[in-house]
Design a protein around this nucleic acid. Sequence first.
DNA 1: CAGTGTTGCACAACGCCGTTATTCTTCACC
DNA 2: GGTGAAGAATAACGGCGTTGTGCAACACTG
Lengths: 226, 226
Amino acid sequence: MSPRKLDPDTRTTLVDIAARLLAEHGAGALSTRKIAAEAGTSTMAVYTYFGSMSGLVREMVHEGFARLEQQFAGVRQTDDPVADMAVLGHAYRHNARVNSHLYAVMFGGQSLAGFSLTEDDRQHGRYTLATVVDCAGRCIAAGRFGEADPLLVAHEMWITTHGLVNLELGGYLIDPVGADRAYEAMLTSLLVGVGDDVKSAAASLAASKKRRRREVETPEPVTSRN
Amino acid sequence: MSPRKLDPDTRTTLVDIAARLLAEHGAGALSTRKIAAEAGTSTMAVYTYFGSMSGLVREMVHEGFARLEQQFAGVRQTDDPVADMAVLGHAYRHNARVNSHLYAVMFGGQSLAGFSLTEDDRQHGRYTLATVVDCAGRCIAAGRFGEADPLLVAHEMWITTHGLVNLELGGYLIDPVGADRAYEAMLTSLLVGVGDDVKSAAASLAASKKRRRREVETPEPVTSRN
DNA sequence: CAGTGTTGCACAACGCCGTTATTCTTCACC
DNA sequence: GGTGAAGAATAACGGCGTTGTGCAACACTG
């Protein structure tokens, strides 16, 4: 009946249940007892598989970064790297909105079940940025961003998109500005600010819009399997 | 001995203690019992004055916005509005770093003591942006930002600075990029991106640096009185 | 194919939490 | 001075994360 070794399926089931509880009923509903009840086990399961409640939260953070990476992986590399960059930004935003509760844990700082980021967790996050650094490098190689530093440009993109998404999820961006309008404006400003010319930036942004649905929004990332 | 009416001093004392516990010992140390112990009262004090624990958290959020407003108020309006804008950005960042735990509650989303933002709380936050909108208007009037929309520019500034600060507080910005370098780079990119020319932007940024210490960092903000 | 030890798991308990009911005290008002 | 309203202390309730205890089931030894 009971398996002898730790069961990977049970492990992912627990993460899925936790993520769903978090998404559907908020942070207050994330408890060992509720998770155990949903999984049909005792509260001990959380401790055998994750050591503690915050261990499970950490697992959810890694899951969040994994989904972001998967989202990035769906973005093509074309001969218009600036458009690629815009699509990556959209992918970041889309991922954050679809997994908003995970996102809050990833970047919200502290306060969920006493969880706090370790340097390993952060490194995981920074590693995810590699895709953007690479794209920035291609923009520079294509002569679009002048002599910029790819790492710095990638950080500027990250900061911008992250700031937008964070305020958007916090409910701070409303009419008449709104998140969509702010996103487009910011992207334009930033691209021009790092060296692209106004017309080229506008063209790449227009090109990116056509790709967003196909490369970002279509394969609804699998949240759970329960 | 016991006052007949609700004592405003006791009220602010409770907020101060809560903010200090949060800052010094993290979210886990924020409990009615610990607050009561420090204040020399019973746990009931939290309920008499704030209705609940999350009511106290809400009060801390308002306190956070009040400090930000105070921080903004210390920034002068000069005949170089772009430099003013850069100083405002620095003020935002400085305030967030000095009150990082309040900041996390203001924008971190959910999850502290079941607290969640109401539309009133958000409105308070947006109102604080008025100073930035005004400054953007002066930039435009000075012919620095072309025909831009002040509200949109202010949002771009907010998004940028907020994104930077949030990642900085999360520990994600490290060498070789780092928060300081990223901040200067982002400010330059953004100013140029919204219409300023490269040389003018650089000059205003240089001018702003000299003002930062005096107008932002000197008057260590008083904890509270509300 | 037994014997044996390890280990996943359920159950119950501990100490903490937010919150509430009860009780007492103390002041404001007539 | 009497009376009623309201702040505040105490204790209790249910829920939380976590931990100790005991059992049962598998893996491994011979």
